[in-house]
Write a protein that binds this DNA or RNA. Sequence first.
DNA 1: ATGAAAGCGCTAACAA
DNA 2: TTGTTAGCGCTTTCAT
Lengths: 334, 334
Amino acid sequence: MEKVTSLQVAKRAGVSQSAVSRVFTPGASASAKTVEKVRKAAEELGYRPNMMARAMITGKSRIIGLVVAYLDNQFYPLAMERLSNALQEQGYHILVFTADNSRDNVEEVMKELLDYQVEGIITASVGMSNDLTARCAAAGIPVVMFNRGQDGNDVSSVTSANVAGGRRVAEFLLACGHRNFAHISGWQGSSTGRDRQSGFCGALAEQGIVPQVIDGMYDRDAAAAATRKLMLQTEPPDAIFVGNDHMAFAVMDTLRSGLGLRVPDDVAVVGYDDVPLAAWPAYDLTTMRQPINRMVDTTVTTLLTRIDEPTTPTCRIEIESPLIQRRSTRGLLK
Amino acid sequence: MEKVTSLQVAKRAGVSQSAVSRVFTPGASASAKTVEKVRKAAEELGYRPNMMARAMITGKSRIIGLVVAYLDNQFYPLAMERLSNALQEQGYHILVFTADNSRDNVEEVMKELLDYQVEGIITASVGMSNDLTARCAAAGIPVVMFNRGQDGNDVSSVTSANVAGGRRVAEFLLACGHRNFAHISGWQGSSTGRDRQSGFCGALAEQGIVPQVIDGMYDRDAAAAATRKLMLQTEPPDAIFVGNDHMAFAVMDTLRSGLGLRVPDDVAVVGYDDVPLAAWPAYDLTTMRQPINRMVDTTVTTLLTRIDEPTTPTCRIEIESPLIQRRSTRGLLK
DNA sequence: ATGAAAGCGCTAACAA
DNA sequence: TTGTTAGCGCTTTCAT
C-alpha cells in the first residue's frame, strides 16, 4: 500500500503506462473511454502522480522558494499567508527558508533553494548580494523581492512607494503644526528603511528642517532605547516618525509606560505598514498603509509571468499607499 | 549554464559519474584523491546535486509538510519560524500549505502534500479526520499535530497540558477572590479549546460554581461580541478566562475602549499562550504560557524519530506550563 | 488516440 | 575504492 505507480494503474485499467500519464497530464489527449477506465483504476488504487518524478522530467516542480527573516513583525506572517494562498490557487506551493540577514546565511539558503529546483524565488525582508542575483539569473530562476528594493537590474521587486510615503508623513506632521521632528528609521541596510528616511528628511529639508535620526534596526529594543535617548534631551521632539509599526509600538510603549508621556499630546507618533494591531484601540496608530493584498498579488503576478515567459524583463514596482490617520497624532482628520 | 549534471562534473574530473555521486552522498566512500578532484570540478562548474532526482531514488525528499490555518494569531508564525529553523538545522525544509479548518480543505491539502513525497507532516492549528490520519499511516508518513490533540492512536501530538492549564487558571482566579466567572472559550471544534474549558469548568465545579461559557471561535470579533454580551447582563462576571491571548486582546479592547471598564479593577482577564504582545505594557496580560520552544523541539524530535525509526509508536505529549501573572488580574503576585 | 521506448539526474547494487 | 549497470516514476517523442 506504500506506493502506487502509474504502471499499476495501467495494468488494472488494461492500458499502457503512457495512457495513464496522459490522463493525469494537463495538456494531453486521451479518449473519453480511456480517461474513464484510468480514473476508475486510479481511484480504486488511490493513485496520485508523483510530483518529484514529474518535476524531474518537466523541470517544473511547482515549488516557489520563499526566504524570510523576521516573523515577529506581523506584516510578514500576513504577507506569507496571502502569498501562500495566492500561489496555492495557481497550483504552486512554497518551500520556506528562514534566514537572518547576514550575507553568508542568505547565500547558503539560496543555494539550497536552487537544489530543490524551485521555479521561482520570493524574498521577503532580506537583501541579496549581486553575486546571488547573478547566480539565480544564470540558473534561469526568476526572483522577486518583496518589500525590498535592490540596485541593478537583475531582480524584480515589489514595494510600496516608500520615498513618497516618507514625504507624505513629513507633510502631514508639518500640517499638524509640528516643528521638532525625530525619525527612528528602519534598518539602514534595507532599501525600505533608507527610502522612507530619505523621503521624510527630504520633505523636511525643503522647510529647512533637519530631524534627528536614529536607526531602529527594525528592532523593539533598539527602538525603545532610541525613544529614551530622544526624549531625555533638553529639547525633545514633539513628533516621531518610526520606520515601521512593529517599532512604533515599542516607541509608544516606552513613551507611555516608561516615560509617562501622553500620545499624541506630548509626542505624536507615526508608523509604517498598518498591520492589524495598529488599528486596535491599545495603539490606534497613525501609519502609512502598505497595501498588503495588492503587494502580494503583484508579487505573484510578476513572478508567475516571468516563470511562464522567461524573457519578460525584470521590473521594480512601487505601489502607492495612503496615510491612515488615527489617534497617535492630533488634528486634521479631514 | 542552465543545469550542471553529475555527468559533466565526472567528465571534467576524469572519473565516473557514480564517483561524483559518492562524493556528494553523505554515507559513501571515496578516496581523498577522488574527492579532491570531484570537488574541484564541481566547484568550477557550480554543480550541486539535484534534490528531486535524489529524492526519487532514495524516497527521502528532506521535505516536511506543514499545514497551518491561522497566521493572525502571533503564536503560529512564531512556532512556524522556530519549526523551520529547527528543521533546517537537521537538513529538512518545510513545504507550507495553508488550509482553513473545513474538512474538505484539509483533506485536499493533505493529498497534495503526499504528492510531494514529504517525509513527514506537521499540522498546526488544524484538525484531521480519522480517514486522513489513516491514509497517512498507510502511506507510511508520520504526522505530528502541533497544539492540537486527537482521539485515536494513529497520530502523535504535542500540546501543552491544557486541562491542567484550565484548572490552574480557575484556582488562581478563585484565590484572587473572584466568584463570578465567565469563559470565552477556544473553538470547541479543537481539542485545545475543549481541554482548556473542561479544566477550567471542572475546577470551578468542585466549588459548586458554574461559569458562563461562550465559544469565541479563536476569533477577535466573536470574542468582542461575547464580551459585550457577558458584560451587559445584570450580573456581569468579574473575571473572564479567555481561550487564547489573541482573543483576550480583543476582550480587553472591548472592555476598556468599548465598554469603558477597567482591567483588572472591574474585570480580571486571563489568556492562554503568552505571545510576546501579552507582555507589552499595552495589555500586560496574565496568561498561561505555552512553552513554544519546548513544544517545537519536542515536535521536531518526535517527527524525526518516527522518520528514522518508523516502528516508533505514536505518542501524545503534553508539556507543563506556568501561569504568568501580570496586571490584567489583581493581587497575588507571590 | 495509443503503445513502445527513450530518457530526466541521480543512487545503489554489482562486479572488478 | 572504483566503474558499470540497472532502475526510481514519470513525460514525451515516435511509430502505429
